[in-house]
Write a protein that binds this DNA or RNA. Structure first.
Lengths: 226, 226
DNA sequence: TTAATACAATAGTAACACTATCATTTATAA
DNA sequence: TTATAAATGATAGTGTTACTATTGTATTAA
């Protein structure tokens, strides 16, 4: 694939739209690299400022705090993922094949894009795996949820849940199964890499393993019972 | 139930065993209350010290940092949970009934105990739901894993995975299914409470809902195919 | 040419995550 | 009972984090 993609990320997530300036895009791009390298807890605006040779104060003009920056990055990812799902499902009719395509997407790295958004897709993927739950597992979740900062995630979930309902309208838990698939896909990849005894991974290709597990989990849950 | 329980929590998790002194037990008990109230990010040793009218320095004599304290609390929880599983499964033969009992345990509050460990079980449960993944989603996971700080969690998982293998020896992913059940049980409870649109809850009793969902998920995965 | 905007440079504050020192209380053992 | 060690309290201090404020300069737009 080779085209430019661009999404309107929720404007409650930034003070000044980083998408509009070179510096803004540098901030986001280098934030991804640095969060990947240091982990979210060790990542600070100070370190990011040094990395791109600017000052903390400047970064604060774009983002209120690092949590919002993380949410911005994740929203970009979820929006992109929803776009990819839409794109890949074009011209597909069979609900089973559609769901298989979705699982493949959820367990693959993002395709590289050229142009303005040359974020490191491998890093971005790892951030989603290791850091995304920290975006919602916070005490002020109900406050930040009011700003609709989880809309892209919810939209993606709802789209996949619809596919499940299409496959088997009688299945009772399409949304919970969807979030379980998505979150489990991250967890199992993380465990396979870091705590492999918590999984059944045996090959070297962890993504293949997770893909297999999730397909089994999904289709045995939603199979139409006679 | 009414008896005293006591576990040997991994001694790499503390500097001085909090289990041996009144002050140590106060620290753990009040840490649970405070982490529940403030969330792990806002929780500090300073605030805890004020709460129990001691000083930061004193708390540092028991725990190196708040991450280790969280791990200590979670290890206590996982050890207790494994004990409860063992206890509840006594005298049960039928693997299906055993697995149902396990899911019931995973989706219920801990029973109250008297004696030294009068931790607030409702708070502890919420901490497990909201904070436990923060114990392992850290950059230095491989370092801390060397100290076997995840052993109680792994032991519990392995015990449940064995039950799955007992039910259906041909099922390929007993461990991954187990971690998925446990983690999903937390997530779905968290989502039901905070981001209900990501789930299919309709009743007021979120625990019943999660229980139903997980049983369905588990047994459709491991059903013996003809 | 003026005026606005964007950014850099610098300084400062309160909280956090510790470490160190020393005095005092408490438990224990000779 | 006294000596001794261990546990805790009190206090201080350091470097870092998470910001906010101010002021000067370069760029751009009217």
């Amino acid at each position: 694939m080779d085209f430019q993609v661009s999404f309107n990320v929720n404007n409650k997530l930034f003070v000044k739209d980083p998408d509009n300036t070179d510096l803004g895009r540098q901030i986001v791009k280098n934030a991804i690299d640095l969060i990947y390298t240091l982990g979210f807890e060790q990542f600070t605006f100070k370190k990011l400022a040094i990395e791109i040779q600017t000052t903390e104060a400047t970064i604060y003009r774009y983002f209120e705090n690092k949590h919002k920056l993380l949410l911005y990055i994740l929203n970009w990812y979820w929006s992109y993922m929803e776009f990819l799902v839409m794109f890949k499902l074009q011209n597909l009719d069979n609900p089973e094949i559609k769901l298989i395509a979705v699982i493949d997407l959820l367990t693959s790295d993002l395709p590289d894009t050229s142009g303005k958004f040359d974020y490191n897709k491998k890093y971005l993927n790892q951030i989603v795996i290791s850091e995304s739950s920290k975006a919602y597992l916070v005490k002020d979740i109900s406050e930040i949820n009011k700003d609709e900062v989880f809309k892209p995630y919810k939209d993606l979930c709802s789209k996949i849940a619809d596919l499940i309902a299409e496959y088997n309208p009688k299945y009772q838990f399409p949304k919970s199964l969807t979030t379980t698939l998505i979150e489990s896909s991250h967890q199992q990849q993380f465990f396979a890499d870091n705590l492999p005894k918590l999984t059944d991974v045996n090959s070297n290709n962890h993504q293949d393993f997770v893909r297999l597990f999730l397909k089994e989990l999904l289709f045995s849950s939603i199979v139409k019972k006679v």
